[in-house]
């Protein structure tokens, strides 16, 4: 096995394990920390494909900013394992059946899709570097890019408006 393969299996195992731990943890703060570990593992996968920009932005935005906000809310609301409301047994079962069905549909839909058999970008790929990504974003995908930036701007304006006192 090459180093890339070893890292791939390690990161995959890590991300799945920490995702499971995140769902099953009783303490919400522990859940957030496991989720951060999931983001780290996913960033590692991006680095294996040499998508450096994506990896680091994933870390700054998700693991850094958004998870800090999650922690903020959880810490201020003082949610502990003891105060967690016990959910109804039927509700739990409905949730399990619902998500199982979603998994089934996803697998069935992707089973014969074109994505199968396509090789991924290898460790020598350059498409994920900042220069290439910027060039693609500002030429081929300039309209979606600008539309999403307008969306962000309106979200920001909305946040400022809500934050104002009157």
């Amino acid at each position: 096995m090459s180093i890339t393969q070893i890292l791939f299996w390690f990161l995959s195992a890590l991300s799945i394990l920490s995702a499971l731990m995140m769902v099953t943890s009783r303490n919400p703060v522990h859940s957030v920390l496991w989720l951060i570990l999931v983001f780290f593992a996913i960033s590692g996968h991006y680095i294996l494909m040499n998508a450096q920009f994506l990896a680091i932005v994933n870390m700054i935005v998700y693991a850094g900013a958004i998870m800090v906000l999650f922690l903020f809310v959880i810490m201020l609301m003082n949610m502990n394992a003891e105060t967690e409301p016990q959910k109804n047994k039927w509700l739990k079962m409905a949730g399990a059946i619902g998500s199982g069905t979603l998994l089934l549909v996803l697998v069935a839909a992707l089973r014969d899709s074109e994505l199968r058999g396509r090789t991924l970008e290898g460790p020598e790929g350059t498409i994920g570097l900042v220069k290439q990504l910027g060039a693609v974003l500002f030429t081929d995908y300039v309209v979606p890019f600008e539309i999403s930036s307008v969306l962000f701007l309106s979200a920001m304006v909305g946040a400022v408006l809500i934050g104002k006192k009157d």
Partner: peptide, 22 residues
């Protein structure tokens, strides 16, 4: 020497908050 040197510093700084918060 990654291509994204400065961004790496930013990422580590934003992770560093967790030490204090936790």
């Amino acid at each position: 020497k990654p291509d994204i040197g400065i961004l790496y510093v930013f990422a580590v700084v934003s992770i560093g908050v967790f030490g204090m918060m936790i």
